[in-house]
Design a protein around this nucleic acid. Structure first.
Ligand SMILES: [Mn+2]
Ligand SMILES: [Mn+2]
Ligand SMILES: [Mn+2]
Ligand SMILES: [Mn+2]
Lengths: 224, 224
DNA sequence: AAGCAAATTTAAGTATACTTAAATTATTTG
DNA sequence: CAAATAATTTAAGTATACTTAAATTTGCTT
């Protein structure tokens, strides 16, 4: 019924739709999944036939309830594996995402529940992504904004890195930027929307491309 | 280069050849892998072309050095996963083998090494199967014989259950027969080669089919 | 609103891993 | 040792998931 390929399509459609709110284009999926646009068109029809998505010719895909259910389950498996590989097996950023990308597809309900229990039911993965429970429900999460949209001269706590790429995570750890760090947004350049942040005792410049991948919650103004 | 299907063929060929010493027949493989004999014949040629096995028409398969290397690596991955799932994640006999059968194919060298390290480099899996190291070397193992071939009126220690089937393992635990148990072989019936063993305070009859799957080492005669 | 470029689909073809049915080869047995 | 029987291969066909190239549709731009 659902193969590794199909699962990857469904997860990509779900997550892109969540992030961008609109129909997911063939071009986007082709890029993300490293296949031709023709392959996307093909698979789009198959997934629509099987009720995982709606696929309108020339206007892209949207997820259905059935597709969402599968996607949430995959997200759960992916994220629990990430926590496990990182916290228990001590793999590093370079390995964790890649491995989880494979393991998520071959993990039974019993196995993932055993991992969940072993980890004491974590609510967030190492990037700060929320982990759906068995029922597909996300943990309650306080309002977050990306650093790109947040206001200068305020203190924030980093609660999510919305990018799975290894390279970016390595860069962050080099800068001393890690999940749950406190951060002060000192300034923003009109010119290119880059931001200046104080973190781990240093001031760093971050491009807007990077800032939009860092999500934060506001901290009370510290009166010292 | 090597897919999940191919890996399962190679593992099956290696292990059957180890156990029975002769060419591995198409019929056997078809049964083991749940495919038609025609499929085995097809795949036999492919694997031979790629140098994993020798395949002579009408006389079955034998493993090559290259195939053996892959098979040992798979055995390592399979058995380490079994230990991990059983000892760390507390899955039971019903789940462990099935899960390992899938996970073995998608486990990178780095991940399996991390598991190996986490487990402190175990030498045997939960069935008592030896675990090859990174180099494909088996741990040194004392001489073992199956209960079927061992002598009556002697004490033994169980060191291996040479069967992955869930059903048999459940049966054993019901009888109080577990890995590393002491066992006394009290008698054997000529009629059907069934054996009588004293274990966990009880005397049990075991068919020869079962006895040949239990491997033991002899214990010094206890003089009490 | 016509023309154009970009996005997407259709068409035709490939590789993998199967299937069933027919043909072939090997082995057993009377 | 010749049938009969069992094992295996060959042949033809299927499903999945791709590819490239050609055709089509969409959404600008002027
Ligand atoms: Mn994946
Ligand atoms: Mn993540
Ligand atoms: Mn397997
Ligand atoms: Mn085992």
């Amino acid at each position: 019924m659902s193969t590794i390929s199909k699962e990857d399509y469904i997860k990509a459609i779900y997550t892109d739709q969540q992030r961008n709110g609109k129909n997911v284009s063939a071009t986007y999926l082709a890029g993300k999944l490293n296949v031709s646009k023709a392959a996307v068109s093909d698979m789009g029809k198959k997934l629509a036939n099987q009720g995982f998505i709606k696929y309108e010719a020339y206007r892209g895909a949207t997820i259905t309830k059935k597709g969402e259910k599968l996607a949430l389950n995959l997200l759960r498996r992916h994220r629990l594996w990430e926590v496990f590989l990182m916290d228990v097996l001590k793999l590093d950023w370079g390995e964790v995402h890649e491995e989880a990308e494979k393991l998520e597809h071959l993990t039974s309900e019993k196995l993932i529940d055993a991992i969940d229990k072993y980890l004491h039911y974590p609510k967030f993965d190492p990037h700060g992504h929320p982990i759906p429970n068995k029922l597909g429900e996300f943990p309650h999460t306080p309002a977050v904004v990306s650093l790109k949209e947040s206001q200068i001269k305020k203190k924030y706590r980093i609660v999510r890195f919305d990018d799975e790429s290894f390279e970016l995570m390595k860069y962050f750890s080099r800068l001393g930027i890690s999940l749950y760090s406190e951060i002060y947004l000192s300034d923003r350049l009109e010119f290119d929307d880059s931001v200046f942040v104080e973190v781990a005792g240093r001031t760093q410049a971050l491009s807007s491309k990077i800032a939009e991948r860092i999500f934060v919650t506001e901290l009370e103004a510290k009166d010292d």
